[in-house]
Structure formats: structure tokens, C-alpha cells
Amino acid sequence: MSSEGRVRKRLTSRTASLVAIVIAVLWTTPTFGLLISSFRPELEIKTNGWWNFFGDPQVTMANYEEVLLNQGLLSYFINSLVITIPSVLFPVAFSAMAAYALAWTRFRGRDWIFIGIFALQIVPLQMALIPMLQMLSPVQEALIWPYPTATVWLAHTCFALPLGIFLLHNFISELPGDVIEAARVDGASHARIFRQVVLPLIVPALASFGIFQFLWVWNDLLVGLVFAGGGPDNAPLTVRLAEMAGSRGQEWQRLTAGAFVSIVVPLIVFLSLQRYFVRGLLAGSVKG
């Protein structure tokens, strides 16, 4: 590890930055193209490439005006929030509980239950829609609530559980056993260990599952369409944006702006949850 070693290290770090930049450019360029397109006039979008914008910048807010000032957009926005928040909270909590039970309580058959839940991930959403509708319709009627939102929450929660339990089980089962054993010996109940020991330790895992569940629900079109319907009373933003393309897709250029209107919230969520991915939170908890 003389001067030669140091030179090599600097070289790899230079190539490292280069590789990172190449990946970042590759991954961002398509989206950047869409961003540029969303400010271009309809005819330009449809007849030449977005890079021509730099040679001949024609800026229009028409696409954003169509999308933002469209009647009732705010209403759909609220629907999306009302749908998304519980649809993230429920599965995160239920998955964490189930994952804890599967990792740290002792009863016969728990491994098989875990494997079974894991396998349920493959049940295609589409095949589950009709039977779920049949089961949830009476639930909704029993609740005597005029909005079908509750069934949307339950539907999203059902579909998220297998992945959630699988992901969180992997984190929770990696926690150091002696901490939990010690608490048990001290006479703490499982409920208390779960609340006071486990939950604080798995915050990064909860945050990452929460982010993905948020994205999935926020961008979901299908579950929203089936369980909430397409009207302004309940339908999420995605349903409205998809409709804006017109009956025969003739207005698809509006979707360029639509994509950026709906991306704002997920990005805010991502950036604000980023701080939970802090180094050291799990440090010392990894075995070995």
C-alpha cells in the first residue's frame, strides 16, 4: 500500500464517479425528455423530437393548464390522499405484526405459514378482483357509508400483505435474538417487546416498505377503478389523468404534463423518508 496503491485508489474513484454519472444520465434522460415535451406545443410534440427544443425553444403552458385547471382536479387529489394514507398504514402495521409473530414466537407450523404467505405473492391481482368485489360489497353495505373508500383500503391492504410480510420478516428475523430473549426473561410480553424493542429497530425497513406501498397505491389505476369507480366522489388522480387523453387517445400530449403533476407527491414522500435510511440505526444489530 505505497504510492502505487494510492494512485490506483484515486483512479477507481474517478471511474466510479464516471460510472455513477453514466447510470444517472441513462436513467434520467428519458424522463427529462418528457419534462421538456410537457412544455412544448402539441404539434411540435407530435412532429419532432424534444431535443429540437434547444434549437428552437417554443414554450407553452397549455398542457399544464389543461391538466391543472381541469374541473375538479383538486377533488381527485383529495381522493388520492384519502385512499393512499390508510392503504399504506394498514399493511405496514399488519405486516410488521405478522412478521414479528412468524419470526419470534414459537408455535408449530410457523415456517409453513410463512412460506404459504410468501407464495401468495404470485396470485395475480386481476384474478383476485372479482371474488374480492363479491366479498367486500356486503361489507360496504353493512357499514352504511356512501363512499366505497373503505373497500379500497381493504383491497390495497390485502394485495400488499404478502410482500410486506416477506420484506419485514427478513429484517425482523435478523434482529439479535439475545435482546429479545433478555426482554422475555425480564417478563415483558410480546406486545410490549414488539412496541418498545422491535418497532424502533426496524424503522428503516418500515420506511422503505412504506415508500413502495405508497408509490404502488398512488400510481395504481386498476384497484382504484374497480373498487372506487371513476366518479369525482371517490376516484383517485390516476383515473382522472388517464381519462384526459380523450375518448380515442387524441389528447395524449396532456399526459406529459399529467405525469409530472402526479410525480410531485411521491417525490416529496421519498425525499422526506430518506432521513430514516441513516447509517448506524441497525448497526450492532447484525449478527456476527
Binding site: 368485489l133 363479491q134 360489497s137 377503478l225 381519462e243 375518448s247
Partner: peptide, 21 residues
Amino acid sequence: VKYEGSAEFEAQIKVRVDGNR
């Protein structure tokens, strides 16, 4: 009159009818 139009009509109408909605 509560109206709803959807791009996914062809597949969705079947889901709704079979799902009692």
C-alpha cells in the same frame, strides 16, 4: 344521473358485473 366513463371499459364492465357492482 351518475355518469362514469372509462378507458378500461371492456374489461372493467365484466369485472363489475361478475362482482355484483
